[in-house]
């Protein structure tokens, strides 16, 4: 079976499990939406201020909760399943790619839901014509978060407190994504160019993809 076929099959199963369990959307998304709704209340419903901080709050919450979406599946992986995949000849890099693919789709969907809620609650100054640029930044951040979550999950695999440790690994490494995502929205609102920030997201995504694929095999062996 080719690398691509293995990747697609592993992503398909991860998405099937999410469809069945709904962990990301039944557990994580409601918390994120509640947090999003609490900020305007804490600010005393000062409309101008709420509108100004809307995108920053979106990215802060999007990164924090998106991280949990990305980490969720890695945390449920058990030794038997890893052994099964190894003995079926699954390339560890395909396992990484499959998990990133599924995680990217889930995280993108999560960020889209959060973004729509943010627009409704905060009324940010984002022109409709910028929708493609907004969509691009959401997808690129989702891919980066998913790569980070998968990589951190692999590094922490086998440890008792792996979920907590993986979160601590992801948080500082997600800063370039947070900065690039929020600055993209700032630039859109100000009518400025977004290219530098898109390049930062692209560089981060590519670096994580290369690291994930290159480290997949040594990490899998090291955590046995």
């Amino acid at each position: 079976m080719s690398f691509g076929d293995q990747t697609l099959e592993l992503a398909r199963v991860d998405l099937a499990l999410e469809r069945r369990l709904g962990e990301s959307f039944r557990i994580i998304a409601p918390f994120a939406l509640v947090a999003l709704a609490m900020f305007p209340m804490a600010l005393g419903l000062r409309i101008t201020l709420v509108s100004e901080i809307g995108t920053a709050v979106f990215w802060a919450l999007g990164i924090l909760f998106g991280m949990q979406v990305a980490l969720r599946r890695s945390s449920t992986d058990d030794r038997e399943r890893r052994d099964l995949h190894a003995l079926l000849g699954v390339d560890p890099a395909a396992r990484f790619a499959g998990r990133v693919l599924a995680g990217s789709l889930l995280t993108t969907a999560f960020l889209v839901v959060l973004f729509v809620a943010m627009v409704l609650l905060y009324g940010p100054r984002l022109p409709l014509a910028a929708a493609p640029a907004i969509a691009l930044s959401i997808v690129m951040v989702a891919v980066g978060l998913s790569e980070l979550g998968t990589l951190a999950g692999e590094i922490a695999w086998g440890l008792r407190d792996r979920t907590a440790l993986a979160s601590l690994i992801v948080a500082p490494l997600a800063i370039p994504l947070l900065v690039a995502g929020s600055q993209t929205f700032e630039a859109i609102a100000a009518g400025a160019g977004i290219l530098p920030w898109v390049l930062l997201m692209l560089t981060t995504d590519l670096a994580l993809a290369v690291a994930g694929v290159a480290m997949a095999r040594p990490l899998e062996e090291a955590t046995r």
Binding site: M1, D5, Q6, E9, V13, A16, L17, R20, L21, E80, R81, D83, L84, H85, L87, L88, G89, V90
Partner: peptide
């Protein structure tokens, strides 16, 4: 190599058929 370990190597959330189909897909 075929391994039948202490604990069954299955994905609990999938049905028995789905587990086997997953194996079929990965084993081409």
């Amino acid at each position: 190599v075929g391994l039948m370990g202490h604990r069954p190597a299955v994905i609990p959330e999938l049905t028995i058929t789905e587990n086997l189909e997953h194996v079929c897909r990965l084993a081409a």
